[in-house]
Design a protein around this nucleic acid. Structure first.
Lengths: 116, 116
DNA sequence: TACTCAAATTGATACTTGTCAATGTATGAT
DNA sequence: ATCATACATTGACAAGTATCAATTTGAGTA
């Protein structure tokens, strides 16, 4: 029997909670500076970079760059690994999935060239 | 000859301009309400929905929903098709690519059930 | 024409955010 | 112990944003 107003269960592939974290990640990637930082990390030698390497390209102050990196970490897009005086940032698996899904994956043969 | 500071050309898969529009799209998807709207459009019968159908679920006023839809249209994520008194919104190809890449594609067997 | 309905727009307001300058913190070197 | 370096944090401020209430626009209808 056909009912033009019947309600239908729709199989969403993500739960509301997952959609929430996804929105947070989109929001984090929605700032041009932060998207740029992500690309710079992705193309860095050993797939990691420290703040002093990332800062110059942005044209922003070190404090502001740290601020953006923190947002990316909190969104689950970057890992922070402090070794000695430096903080090394690298892509999380989640970030790799998103970027590679969107054909943003990058292969780099950069060699290390730190400015600090 | 090895030079630890040599500069290396990196093959980025997106131009700066493309990254800019991508950031705009991420920003648009970064709002929970707008991500929800996108999912609701995606799961709508005929893959399109009008404002009066989308508004109730949001708990927001009609004007605010129109505002969010405009942002999604300007980001190139939704098409607007005005037919009669109604504006029908549907996913753009760009939006389909993004959502399906992230396993957010949805198959719906909803039947039309308009509230206006 | 006058009226109704769907949607867009406007103006106002509270809240969020990106940024800098300055300061704090922790690590390693002299 | 003192100092320098790398990074994080704080406070302040301008700019942007989400929201609502109210109004306007535009299309169909009586």
């Amino acid at each position: 029997m056909y009912d033009s107003n019947m309600s239908v269960t729709v199989a969403l592939s993500k739960s509301p909670a997952e959609l929430g974290t996804l929105a947070t990640q989109f929001k984090a990637l929605g700032d041009p500076t932060r998207l740029d930082l992500m690309m710079n990390v992705a193309t860095s030698a050993d797939s990691e970079a420290c703040v002093c390497d990332l800062t110059p390209d942005t044209g922003l102050t070190q404090g502001t760059v740290s601020h953006h990196l923190r947002i990316l970490v909190e969104a689950g897009l970057l890992n922070r690994d402090q070794r000695g005086k430096w903080s090394y940032y690298s892509l999380t698996d989640s970030a790799k999935n998103i970027l590679s899904s969107l054909n943003l994956s990058i292969s780099s043969n950069k060699t290390k060239s730190s400015s600090c």
